[in-house]
Design a protein around this nucleic acid. Structure first.
Lengths: 214, 214, 214, 214
DNA sequence: AATGAATGAGTGTTCATTCAT
DNA sequence: TATGAATGAACACTCATTCAT
């Protein structure tokens, strides 16, 4: 124990853990969970294959941790955004979607991996991740229910709307490329409007929404 | 089919090919492309491992053929549905979505695999599949453009609407379970309304759309 | 299938299986079950590592098959020897021990491996092998019981005698070297006399038994 | 133990060494030398993996020390027992066997490991252990030779008798379970009689030796 | 004496694919 | 067309051991 720089060793350890997680993320993102090997991860993390196992006891736990982190972060961001939004359902929805879209754009690979590799999780790990995902969707469901109750949303299909809104936001991860036509904020506004329209909310008249003309 | 015809061998051959494709579909659907092995496919098809290679020269071509078939079929169904629909964009959209949703429900595994395993296609195979997928999306884009031109759709974001509509339809494959609350037709109507709402079309007042109440 | 030399392929297959079993026997004998690797076995069998798995699905099954063969053969030899022996218990014991010792000498490595590596067998395989071993010991127990009943054996401890006789015979595998002082037959006679003495049978006066002097 | 004494550190050290040896014994006993890992030992000893190497420079030396201790203890016990016994060979044999059997029962795992894992010792360590084992057997050989010289033992095979007597005693480790039919003393008497009978000594008429009836 | 991190060789096993028939 | 045997590379993971502290 280095008594003069407390935490340094642990920090080094943490740093390694982070490097491994980052490498795993890249590997799983590029080749998929089964397509990526622990050797890929080790190479990406700049460590030896066997040392990986000092940090994560199994490949599956690497995925589990990755998804747990991503889903928790997403949930936290949306929760916070909603808590800071106004009373009206439309406002809360706008806040949620802005946070959601921002997360997907900021963490595209995490989002992609969370979307496409959950299926390879098993057991407790799966349940935890699914729970976080459900929590996220629940936020939308509550907003939708409130909006319907208050007469803000008039969709005849409120029960399935939340899921579809989540789908729309998640799907961004599958095609987004940085530097595209729309900025992160633009994308957020766009998706908020898509969502509100889908819910059959009252909308301000369309003006010159970016991406409108060709 | 005709046991006297000289085509019998070919038919047997065809039968085998179909069995192999079906087995590959199930395997890829259950475990993912990289998670499923050629042995899994052979077992599922009831043939020997090595005989697989008499029909498909590589695992990747199994996936390619699978995706080609699925995308072509989807494209054909939507194309036909649209061609038989009315003049108005909303009508054509309804027809397209009905066909689309029906395909996803009828061929859920195909849809799921097409959604999640395209990434493992490379080279020409990929291009072919991507082309078919683009053709499908183009149909929606044309409808959207027409609707906007005719004043039916008032969304400020017409350029990205088609992609999102496709997303909504495709996403059904990720959660649908036969025998659920909504029938195939219900789902089609629901998604058509979601899409039209998203496009900010004029909509009939919501009545008692299934799934509305609890 | 080669229709002109039926069985050739299977024979080749059999030959390979035998070569693998032989190599496994040598490897397990030399280094123990856990000390020997499948690569050792493959090298010894003159085939590739992966091809081993076309014949035996797991290392443990190699051991299981080895032990099954050895124990069955031993049981068969002793059974046959006893069935061809006289009525008197001493005669049957002599026959059993002669066969037993001959087997151990003829198949020293098998005997050694059967003795020291059974513990690494698990599940059904273990039960099968243990059953065969018990059957062998049962033969001795029956002979002992008969001899006691007939007054041939006067040991006060007949219940544990059979196990100890088996021990004496098995132990040969741990020290025997071909070309030693005693021939296979000598060893058999010696152990028969040891066993009869242990059972406190009436014995002919000792003459010049080999190994008596120095 | 004595917290004030300067020997505390050494005692702690000793305590650790003992814990490690005990853990190694259990691990090797349960899984065999090659089947047990240094991690198993560390876990069992309640210390870290790397700290093991402060006490034993290699896995093999753990085994060596274990076997040395066991064989030395056995040798010491038998030596002492014999030295306190009478003049007659039969009496010395009885004493030796009583001590031998008691050791095997008291230290079953040590005995088992000594029996089955010696083969994995190499070099000097092996020689030391083999020497101790030979010393033990030599005691028996001397007794046998004396008994033969004095006419107490009339076996025609005196040269191999000692080894077999040792075998009989060692074999107890392979099947003994505490709480069985025979006590430690019973087992000792039983094996003494087996041994004397095997040597063709004059024996008192069998009475009701435990384990005789059913 | 004690630790956690690290390593390189090695483990049993499976992979997609090819070969001979 | 169909098979079983074969292969070499790769897989996830564990090993005994060492290093820095």
């Amino acid at each position: 124990m280095n008594s003069r720089s407390p935490g340094l060793v642990r920090d080094g350890s943490r740093a390694n853990e982070v490097a491994i997680l980052r490498a795993a993320l890249e590997a799983f993102g590029a080749k998929g969970f089964h397509g990526a090997s622990m050797r890929d991860v080790a190479r990406g993390a700049g460590t030896s294959l066997s040392n990986l196992y000092n940090y994560f006891p199994a490949k599956s736990q690497l995925l589990a941790e990755l998804l747990r982190l991503a889903n928790d972060e997403l949930l936290a961001r949306i929760t916070e955004a909603v808590s800071g939004a106004g009373e009206r359902a439309a406002d809360r929805l706008r806040a949620a979607i802005a946070a959601h879209v921002a997360f997907v754009v900021d963490h595209q690979v995490e989002s992609l991996v969370a979307l496409s590799e959950v299926r390879y999780l098993a057991g407790v790990a799966r349940e935890g991740v699914v729970a976080a995902r459900d929590s996220t969707q629940n936020i939308y469901e509550r907003i939708v229910a409130d909006g319907v109750r208050d007469g803000e949303f008039r969709t005849p299909y409120p029960d399935d709307a939340a899921r579809n809104i989540v789908s729309l936001c998640s799907a961004i991860a599958t095609w987004y490329r940085p530097g595209g036509r729309l900025s992160k904020q633009d994308l957020g506004e766009q998706h908020a409007r898509y969502a509100l329209a889908l819910l059959e909310a009252e909308l301000p008249p369309a003006r010159s929404g970016k991406g409108a003309g060709r």
